[in-house]
Amino acid sequence: MSDFLQYLISGLAVGCGFALLASGLVTIHRVTHVVNFAQGMFAVVAGLTAGSFLSVGLPHGLAEVAAVAVAGAVGLLVGLIAIGKPGTSAQSALIATLGLGFAAYAVEIMIWGDNPRSHPGLRGTVEIAGAYVQKQSFLVIGVTAAVFAALLAFFTRTYLGKALSACAANPYAARAVGINVTRMGLVAFVLGGMLGGAAGVLLTPLMPISYNSDVLLITNGFAAAVLGALNRPGLALIGALTLGVAETMVAGYYEASYQTVVALALMLVIMIWQSSRRTALQEEAAR
């Protein structure tokens, strides 16, 4: 029982990291229709940057926030390249983000080398009903809850957030009222960068990150987001938490090396199940 509780909470924490990543993916996809393959890279950059900031003496909190800001700037750069050139299709943009992921590898290896790195988060454990849970896990869960609440408020309460939703709902009408849809797309990329960055700084203390961790991160983020067809942050959250808990349970009760297999298989099943309820005509029309 205490094992179960421990796995559940640390699974939820990992799931929260995936959820942040997925919400960035969803934000970018909703506004720009681009599936951003570089989303995992944002987390890697922020996680490694936070470690560097801490090691040069920046205090906790400041270091993490600064790293998230860096990830936001990287998001802007990715956005500028992926959608800045007029007439770039969503397909081309995905391939471009794949390329940017590679380019990032080069920069990351130059700065941080190619070994996995980690930085200390919140130290210590808490005992609940006989289970020892890392404090960092609670931090991740709490911050994620706050971020999601802020995100919800941003999209439903602020004028800029509504303008972003407007671009997602109807780009033509958005242009008609004078909204610069490309600029809004860049705003989405900055947000996506920061959300990915938040995932990175929160997860790095729980699991060391190296330059090529982005593939697993993006795959998990995508798996979570695909539950809501990359458009529904709420469903992405549910997907991510399920994924995180399922992976941790598999690792805990069965075999750690199978945890990603379970997640990936889950993603495949969901996608295929969804596709059986959709026709080619609907998809081509929606493009």
Partner: peptide, 28 residues
């Protein structure tokens, strides 16, 4: 100049009030 576009072009997920508010984007 302001446009009433062909085919109405709602921001379908947003409320009527939010649709109207976004009409003022140029004068935000």
């Amino acid at each position: 100049a302001a446009l009433v576009p062909e085919g109405r072009q709602m921001f379908a997920d947003l409320t009527v009030d939010d649709n109207l508010k976004l009409g003022a984007w140029r004068r935000r």
